[in-house]
Simulated assay, not measured.
Amino acid sequence: MIVECPNCKSSFNLDDALVPPGGRKVRCSVCENIFTATPPAGPPTGELPELDELADGFGQDFGADDDDLLASLGEAALDRDDQDLPGVAEAPEAKAAPSASRSAGSAPKLDLNLDTVPKAGKAAKAGRGRGRRVVIAVAAIVLLLGAGLGAVWQFAPQYLGLAPEAKSGSGGTEPVADPTEQVRKISLEGIKQYYVENDKTGRLFVIQGKAVNLFETPRELIAVEASLFDAQNQTLATRRLLCGNTLDLFQLQVLAREEIDAALENEAGIGANNISLQTGQSVPFMIVFFTPPEGLAEFNVRVVDAKEVAP
């Protein structure tokens, strides 16, 4: 008998003796589907209808004048006895399983022992087990990488190219202001430089000028930075100081180095002139280099800080 798997439509040639009248559960060796194989239906019972019954089927009686027609019908009935009845013919060999062209050793077979797991099923389960292990390993690696990045983010954000955050007074966090934005409207004016011979330390290189607040709101604690360069534009020295402090020529000539530094590093400036600088107001600055380096060719001064006045 020919049995077809209802799942993958594979066909199998199964011995009729192995299938009882009530059917038998079998497993498809192609897709492992379990289904019930039933024996084929038997040939129909009953006798062929008589010629008169055939005539009745056509809704007419046959008389003596129709002997030739009756004879032909009788011959057709006899021929019908020699032929297979409809529904009794066996499935043609052409309707074999798609794998019927395989060799006998590789043709699929139905598994009648449902207590054992097919080898293909074991291999599939083993493959699924390996797949789960690979997924678990990849997930563990991703978690470790995420934990590492989180630790770097928390304790060393500079390695990720992230700007640090400044703590606000209320306990929250707020981003550090852009230094360029903080000083973009502080203008430097009246800048000049000159040398002074000091009695105690030798030659001094002095840069002075004033910083003007062009912001629409007050600024304070403005700081400037001066750099010295040689002819190849190489930096020779750099110094940064708060504005608001200056010395006259006599002081520059007679004061010791420690005294000059102390006078120029007063944070609030002389008379607190570097505090709450209103729009349009200016504050003076002075930067002194002791024993200026040889090869000095030019210098540069820029504003590096200007804080907003707290409301």
Rank of each mutant, 00 (worst) to 15 (best):
F205P: 03
A94F: 00
V176Y: 05
F289Q: 02
Q232L: 11
E47L: 12
I222S: 09
K307W: 00
S10L: 08
T36D: 12
N113F: 04
A163M: 10
Q281I: 07
Q281D: 15
R80E: 08
E4H: 08
G129A: 14
L144N: 06
G190Q: 12
F229V: 00
F285D: 09
F229C: 04
A147Y: 05
C28A: 05
R80C: 14
A37E: 01
V152H: 01
D261R: 08
A137W: 00
L54S: 05
A76I: 07
K210G: 04
Q278K: 15
P20R: 02
C28I: 02
F12T: 10
K167E: 10
P108Q: 03
S168T: 00
T279A: 08
V176A: 15
D52R: 03
N233K: 04
P284L: 05
P293S: 02
R128A: 15
L51F: 03
I275P: 11
D84H: 04
R239S: 13
T38Q: 08
K307V: 12
V117K: 09
R24D: 07
P98A: 11
D52V: 10
D79S: 13
I136Y: 10
E294C: 01
I270N: 09
T235N: 02
I275R: 15
E90F: 08
G146D: 08
L255F: 13
L149D: 07
G105A: 13
R132N: 10
I186G: 08
Q234K: 08
V30W: 05
S168L: 13
A263W: 05
P179G: 01
W153N: 12
D81C: 13
G169I: 10
G146H: 02
T38N: 08
L160A: 11
G146A: 14
S29C: 04
G63I: 04
Q278G: 12
G190F: 07
R24F: 00
G161R: 00
A123W: 10
D81R: 14
R133Y: 06
G209C: 01
R257W: 02
N33Q: 10
F299C: 01
A163P: 09
L145C: 12
D61A: 11
A256F: 03
G295N: 00
G105P: 05
G42S: 09
L264I: 03
